[in-house]
Design a protein around this nucleic acid. Structure first.
Lengths: 218, 218
DNA sequence: GCGCATTGAGCAAAATGCGCACAACCAACC
DNA sequence: GGTTGGTTGTGCGCATTTTGCTCAATGCGC
């Protein structure tokens, strides 16, 4: 078992930093360092702790997060509420492997970390690569669902989302319409909800457990 | 009609630089600056001519191409014969949007330039973006057509498509009819589906993985 | 003889459905 | 207000089936 990937979160907001640190820790194959809140502390942490990945906000109280990741020779993800093209482009030019707009569902960061882990394996520093493997690594990093969603899974998900266009539905109902079992529909709907593609509400008022109602997020 | 994208090619080999310059010039929406052969000349060209994109070799006689693209705030592609993971990773960290291993077919650079043009449109500096558009732009840049999918069908593919004219079928079934192994038929059918020549649906209702059903797209 | 592309065998993993334990609610009762 | 029983729905472990992938074998062209 290889060493876990160590990640440094850099965010001026203490809570946000802690939240992201927790997400990282919860991911298989990852360990989170204590978050830091500014460029100076981040520089020291990079020097002393040699993280494998830095997850950095654009705006930091003592400097520019983008300039910071440009200066370090460490893989980096940019995280920011900033969503103008100029900032995004600047971050990518500075070497950000990915750019996430805050706030986001925890699952989104998890999936990006999953993709990054696979990417690292594909372009391990000690390997000889060919163009195909470089290209594939980049697709893994930037593809939807953090890599190749299998044909089966994505087909089933598309089917469910399509059926939800007609309006809110329960798992049982939509399973019936899709020709799936209730458990399978439930499983997929829960995953879609976790990723933020679908909303869940609960229907109260009758005996028994409340029914989960799913709808497409608009 | 927007201004053409200006591109600076940086390669110590005069012929290679000229070749790439010609490829760029041949691309719709692009104009190539005169290639330069080293970091110093490249720096001057960036300062004086403000290219939109730099296509740079890793090894330059007067410096490190990767360090050079790290220092400029211009979109860059890395081009090199170097194919070790460490170099590729370093280039990506430095902000290379893409990495091409020399030598390559001219068409490959053309397609990457096409992808870059679309990418630029999607993340135009004056736009407000959301996560989906950032992600989509990155997929456009690193997408499937990175690997040149053969447009022409192999003999095996033609056979499978012919057999599918009879109607929807599973991989196992059609393999039997074609005299191939299931795995081979599956592989070809998956490739055909990826290209859009064939549709995939899933057969639900029994335990185990759902069976892929293939049919010719009309 | 070697490199490359293709095939097939075999295996690990993905995805499904079943069945059941239990969670989450509601209403009746004390 | 708290407890209890009943009802309905969810989530999960497991067996099953299929897919997707790796690797060895083979054939072809140079």
């Amino acid at each position: 078992m290889t060493d876990p990937i160590s990640v440094l979160v850099v965010d001026d907001d203490f809570h946000v930093g802690g939240l992201h640190r927790d997400i990282v820790d919860a991911c298989t194959g990852y360990t989170a360092l204590e978050p830091v809140r500014g460029v100076r502390a981040a520089r020291a942490a990079v020097r002393d702790l040699s993280p494998d990945l830095v997850i950095c906000d654009v705006y930091l109280p003592d400097g520019d997060g983008i300039a910071f990741i440009a200066e370090i020779d460490v893989d980096a993800f940019m995280i920011s509420a900033a969503s103008d093209g100029a900032t995004v482009r600047r971050a990518l030019r500075a070497g950000a492997l990915d750019y996430l707009i805050k706030p986001f569902e925890p699952a989104r960061l998890s999936e990006r970390l999953g993709a990054y882990r696979r990417f690292r394996t594909l372009v391990a520093e000690d390997r000889q690569l060919d163009q195909d493997s470089i290209d594939r690594a980049q697709r893994v990093l930037h593809g939807r669902d953090g890599g190749v969603a299998s044909v089966s899974r994505s087909t089933t998900e598309k089917l469910l989302i399509e059926l939800l266009q007609d309006g809110e539905s329960s798992a049982s109902l939509i399973a019936g319409r899709a020709g799936l079992s209730r458990a399978t529909a439930q499983r997929h709907l829960a995953a879609l909800a976790t990723r933020g593609d679908v909303d869940v509400t609960l229907r109260y008022g009758s005996t028994g457990r409340p029914e989960h109602r799913y709808s497409v997020r608009r």
